[in-house]
Simulated assay, not measured.
Amino acid sequence: MKISDVLTGILLAIFGLAVILYAQTFPPIPGQDFGPRAFPSIIGVGFVLCALLLVRNGLRTQSRAAWLKLSDEFRSSHSVFRFLLVPAAVIAYILFSDRVGFAVFSVIFLLVLFLSFGVRPLTAVIVSVLGGALIFYGFYSLLHVPLSWGVLEPLI
């Protein structure tokens, strides 16, 4: 699949603006100069700046090229399934992570994605468990992000 830099830039700019606008809804933390709005807003500005560069370069180099061209791979239903599985997994995380818990869901999330993309089962299980544990540790312990324990809550 070939996506024009112009289209990618437009989508990235929309996403960056959405991140900036949503970050402004975060409540300030009393006694701190920088609150929870700062980091997401900086990232959103970075997205918008990159988007502007993409659009500029895309307009210079591909003035008449198609904005979207599907490759032969997208004629396969298995490829389309794998393509749609990633956003479906993100939506499932949004819907079920509080009940299931971040640690368990991240392992399941990674395992399903690895297996669907053809990773050998043993490798997929090992990397999913280790990856999920490392991601949980990084966010929960190092960054102090409050993550849901879900089904593991009785164990803590």
Score class of each variant (00 low, 15 high):
K2V: 06
I3P: 11
I3K: 02
D5H: 04
V6Q: 04
T8H: 00
G9H: 01
A18S: 09
Y22L: 05
Q24D: 04
Q24K: 06
F26S: 03
P27R: 14
P28K: 08
P28N: 06
I29E: 05
P30C: 00
G31H: 03
G31A: 10
G35F: 06
P36M: 09
R37M: 05
A38Y: 10
S41V: 01
I42P: 01
I43N: 00
I43K: 07
G44T: 00
G44F: 02
G46M: 10
F47H: 03
V48W: 02
C50M: 14
A51N: 05
L52C: 14
L52T: 11
L53M: 12
L53A: 08
L53K: 03
L54S: 06
L54C: 05
V55Q: 05
N57P: 00
G58W: 00
L59Q: 02
R60T: 02
R64S: 12
A65G: 08
A66M: 07
L68S: 08
L70W: 15
L70F: 15
L70Y: 09
D72K: 13
E73P: 04
E73A: 14
F74N: 09
F74D: 08
S77R: 11
S77Q: 07
F81C: 07
R82M: 03
F83V: 13
L84I: 06
P87I: 08
V90P: 04
I91D: 04
Y93M: 12
I94N: 05
I94Y: 03
S97V: 14
R99Q: 13
F102H: 05
F102Y: 15
F102K: 08
F102N: 02
V104H: 11
S106R: 10
V107Y: 09
I108K: 09
F109H: 10
L111T: 15
L111I: 14
V112N: 13
V112Q: 11
V112W: 14
L115N: 02
L115G: 04
L115E: 02
L115M: 07
S116P: 05
F117Q: 12
F117K: 12
F117C: 08
G118L: 15
G118M: 15
V119Q: 14
V119P: 03
L122S: 15
V125G: 14
I126D: 14
S128G: 13
V129G: 10
G131H: 08
L134I: 15
I135G: 06
F136V: 11
F136T: 13
Y140T: 11
S141C: 06
L142F: 13
L143C: 12
L143S: 12
L143P: 13
V145I: 07
V145S: 04
P146E: 09
L147W: 01
S148W: 09
W149K: 06
G150L: 05
E153V: 02
E153Y: 06
P154D: 01
